[in-house]
Design a protein around this nucleic acid. Structure first.
Lengths: 212, 212
DNA sequence: TCTCCTGATGGCAGTTACTGACATGAGCAG
DNA sequence: CTGCTCATGTCAGTAACTGCCATCAGGAGA
């Protein structure tokens, strides 16, 4: 609780520290205030007390400021896939790797994730960026599976299925306010996935409540 | 057979006709020659005998010139999903809708698709655009399914699974030179999908050659 | 035939995302 | 004290897009 109060204003350093963080915060604030499209990079830099040029030294482009966390997410998932017991079926490996991202989606970050997601949904450029991040993630998972001996169409398809499930799980986690864990949303999405793609679950099942 | 030969060169019209087509061709040529990034919109317009301003009247942005066909693809798929017999299971509806795109991927277009795909794979911006086109397609399919009475997580998940299968099928169709029909690639991808996501096909299956 | 309207195009100035090249200047190692 | 490093600033330039207005063939109607 007392740690965050590092002696910033002492002007002991040449520049205000945490330029990258300040840029991220400034960007989120402005995007929420005026929307993504009506915010210029210059606006962001100015609010962070920096210049446009410096912004582009920290982020490859304007959109990246909202996606800097995604490489860490990838690391967590890749590590979980690589470290799974050898006997486990590929699809199960991916599913438990996705559940392992729980520590990434803790309750405290939920409100922030919700705000961020609202921005992304509202802007096509940002949606494009999110999609390619997820596609990159899928490619990384597929690569891990291949290293585990899974053959090719299977590796990619398993990874893509996992990402589809992850997307639904995340969407629900962000949308709802119930304090269920992230992993439970992923598990629910997986059940829905199995039900939807499993061929013919006996007609009887469709007439009753199929869910839990 | 005689119809296409409209009297073009008579200079009867004020402008050369088919501006949009000319722009598309010019763009493909230049992208292949110099690559996407090293081609400016001005280059494209010049080769097509038009101006940059006119390019942007026909295409929303530089990337769109490679994606104008995707709305027709969506139409075909949406129509097929909407017109499927009511009793069919959602996943099967989607699969046969994807096979119905066969007329879109005729043998003659294969070489052109291959060239286009090489461009897309080589350029991140273009990959982003392709991903959002596919995501839009998935959303359209999901909407159709919902109209057919499929509930929500299921509709989206079924659509996403279909798109994942479509991607693999298309990838293989483009890469190979065997004269198999597009639909057969889709079917093969679907089989791989089922095998990969079906939970536990009895351990015995993993020890033998599981593929055909 | 004249006139007006439409619609595809050109011209041009302006904004904004991004880049390359160079300058600055505090802190740190020697 | 010296020189190097490294995060930042400055500035000029490119290229993607946009808004606004002009042009002018052809067609519809008077």
């Amino acid at each position: 609780m007392s740690v965050p109060e590092i002696s910033y204003d002492l002007a002991v350093a040449r520049w205000e520290p945490n330029a990258r963080d300040r840029l991220t915060r400034a960007a989120m604030e402005l995007f929420v205030e005026r929307g993504y499209a009506r915010t210029t990079v210059e606006d962001i830099a100015e609010r962070a007390g920096l210049t446009e040029r410096t912004f582009f030294r920290h982020f490859a482009d304007k959109r990246e400021v909202l996606f800097s966390g995604s490489s860490q997410l990838e690391d967590v998932i890749v590590e979980a896939v690589a470290g799974a017991p050898a006997a486990t079926a590929p699809f199960e490996v991916v599913m438990s790797a996705l559940e392992a991202t729980e520590r990434f989606f803790a309750e405290e970050r939920r409100a922030w994730s919700r705000e961020r997601q609202a921005l992304i949904v509202a802007n096509v450029e940002l949606r494009e960026r999110e999609l390619i991040k997820l596609a990159t993630l899928a490619a990384a998972i597929a690569e891990c599976l291949r290293r585990r001996g899974v053959a090719e169409p299977a590796a990619s398809l398993t990874a893509e299925a996992g990402i589809a499930i992850f997307k639904i799980g995340f969407e629900r986690w962000v949308a709802e306010t119930a304090r269920r864990s992230f992993a439970s949303y992923v598990r629910a999405a997986r059940e829905a996935f199995d039900a939807a793609t499993r061929p013919k679950p006996k007609r009887r099942a469709k007439l009753r409540r199929s869910g839990r």
